Computed example of a mutant assay.
Amino acid sequence: MKLFSNSFTNLERALDYSSLKQKVISQNISNVDTPNYKSKDVSFKEMLAHESGTGLKAYRTNQRHFDFNGSPSANGVYTRNNMQYNHNGNSVDMDKEMSDLATNQIYYNALTERISGKFQTLQSVIKGGR
C-alpha cells in the first residue's frame, strides 16, 4: 500500500522550479548594468523533460506552428538571444524582470500554501481528526 501520493513529489519539483527561476531573475536584475550581459530564463518544458527522463515530442501539422526543437541546458536555464535593450549590449529589461519576479512570488506562495495544507491534513489524520 502506498502511503503518500505523488503530490508531495510534484510539489517539491514545482518548488525547485520556482527556486531556480527566482535565482535566474535575481541574477538578471543584479546584472542590469553589466555591459554585454545577456539575460537568462528558465524553460519549464526542458526541466520537465529532464525530470521525467524523456524528451517531449511534438509533431507539427503546419509549417507555421512553433518548432519544439530547442537546446537549453539540462537544468532548464537558457540565454535569451536576439534581444538588446541598452546601448552597451545588455539585454535585461527591468520591467519584465520585476513582473516575472512578482509572478514567481505568487506561484511560490501558492505552492507553499498547498504543501502546508497537505501536511496539516496528515497531522489531522495522525491525531485522529482532533
Rank of each mutant, 00 (worst) to 15 (best):
K38N: 06
K57G: 01
R114F: 12
F119P: 03
F44L: 07
G89T: 06
L48H: 05
K40H: 09
N82T: 06
I115L: 13
D93I: 05
D16W: 04
N62C: 02
E46S: 07
G55C: 00
I115N: 03
Y107G: 03
K45V: 08
I25N: 03
T79G: 01
V32D: 03
R13W: 09
V24A: 08
D95Q: 10
S124W: 05
F66R: 09
N88L: 06
S91G: 01
K38Q: 15
L3Y: 14
F44N: 00
G129R: 13
V42Y: 01
T79H: 02
E97D: 06
S124K: 10
R80E: 14
E12V: 05
G53W: 13
S18K: 08
L3K: 06
N81Q: 12
Q84F: 01
N62D: 15
I29M: 04
A14H: 10
L3S: 14
Q123M: 10
N69T: 12
K40A: 02
S91M: 02
T103E: 15
T112G: 00
L101K: 09
S18W: 01
E113K: 14
F4N: 13
S30H: 08
K38A: 04
R80G: 00
K45R: 08
D67F: 05
D41H: 11
S26T: 15
R64E: 14
S5M: 05
K45M: 03
I25A: 04
R80P: 00
R130P: 00
A110N: 14
K96D: 09
S26A: 15
F66E: 14
Q63S: 13
G53T: 08
Q27W: 03
S99C: 02
L48S: 11
D33H: 09
G89F: 07
G117R: 14
S52H: 07
N10R: 10
K23L: 06
N81F: 02
S26P: 01
L15N: 07
G55V: 08
E113V: 02
T112H: 06
A102Y: 12
Y78L: 08
Q22D: 09
S30M: 10
I106W: 12
G129V: 11
I126A: 12
V125K: 07
A58I: 11
M47S: 04
L20K: 06
G53H: 10
H50P: 00
N82R: 09
P35W: 04
N81D: 13
S52T: 14
K127V: 09
K96I: 12
S116D: 15
T61G: 15
Y108G: 02
V24D: 03
K118H: 11
N75C: 00
L101Y: 15
G70V: 10
F68K: 04
D41E: 13
R60N: 12
R80Q: 12
R130E: 14
V32A: 12
K57H: 11
V125I: 15
F119R: 05
H50G: 04
D100S: 11
Q105D: 08
N75P: 05
P35D: 09
M1V: 12
S39F: 01
D67V: 04
M98E: 11
Q63G: 05
F44T: 01
S26K: 01
S18Y: 01
E12H: 11
M1T: 13
